[in-house]
Amino acid sequence: MAAIQYYDVILKPLITEKSMNEMSDKKYTFLVHPEANKTQIKEAVEKMFDGAKVKSVNTISQDGKTKRRGATYGKTARTKKAIVALTEDSKEIQIFEGL
């Protein structure tokens, strides 16, 4: 597979009740590329959002669920979440403003 570029790493932000509560602690949750590592996620956040300085990255990988349609079985796509904590002197991420 080709190398993952920083703009391919972050797919979309995850908006849940828990992630909204963690935003007060400067922790943001994103859905990321399943093969991206923590270093790539950190680099992507710092390049995409001006003034963001990443303190730590925690990742959660989930395998696809087994689904059934009639007699055939299949799997949904695997996903990966990243919880990104910013430093105290970092700017907040503007995509989450006003939510």
Rank of each mutant, 00 (worst) to 15 (best):
A52K: 02
V57D: 10
A36N: 04
S24T: 12
Q94F: 12
R68N: 08
A36P: 03
D50G: 05
I83S: 08
V54N: 04
M20G: 00
M23G: 06
D63W: 01
T39A: 09
A44C: 09
V57G: 08
V32G: 03
Y28T: 02
D25E: 15
D89H: 09
K80I: 11
A36Q: 03
T39P: 00
K38H: 05
R68W: 01
V45A: 11
E22K: 14
A71G: 13
A85L: 03
E92C: 05
T79I: 13
R69P: 00
V54W: 04
M48E: 10
E92Q: 09
T76W: 03
K67A: 13
E22M: 15
K53M: 09
I41N: 04
A82K: 01
Q62G: 01
I93F: 04
S24I: 12
M23H: 10
A82M: 09
A52H: 04
A77T: 14
D25P: 00
K80G: 02
A77L: 10
T72S: 13
T76G: 09
T87Q: 08
K81W: 01
L86F: 01
Q62K: 09
M23A: 12
V54A: 07
T39R: 13
Y28P: 09
S19N: 09
H33A: 11
L31E: 14
D63G: 12
T79Y: 07
T76C: 02
Y73E: 15
N37Q: 02
A71F: 11
K18L: 10
K65H: 02
S24Q: 14
H33P: 08
E43Y: 12
K18V: 09
K67C: 01
V45N: 07
H33L: 03
K67N: 03
G74E: 10
D25K: 14
G64R: 06
E46Y: 08
A71K: 14
A82D: 07
K55M: 12
G64S: 06
E92D: 13
N37P: 07
I60V: 14
F49P: 08
V45L: 12
K18F: 04
S19H: 09
D63Y: 01
K18Y: 07
K55P: 00
E43D: 11
T76N: 04
S24N: 15
E43W: 04
S19E: 10
Y28F: 15
F30P: 05
T87P: 05
A71M: 12
R78W: 01
A44H: 08
K81S: 05
T39G: 13
G70H: 08
E43C: 04
K67Y: 10
Q94C: 00
V32L: 03
K81G: 02
E22S: 12
M20P: 00
I93E: 01
E35Y: 08
D89W: 00
F49A: 03
Q40T: 05
E92R: 07
T79F: 01
A44F: 06
K38I: 09
N21S: 11
Q40M: 07
V57A: 02
K18A: 14
K27M: 11
A77M: 10
T29A: 13
M48K: 11
Y73T: 15
G74T: 12
I41K: 02
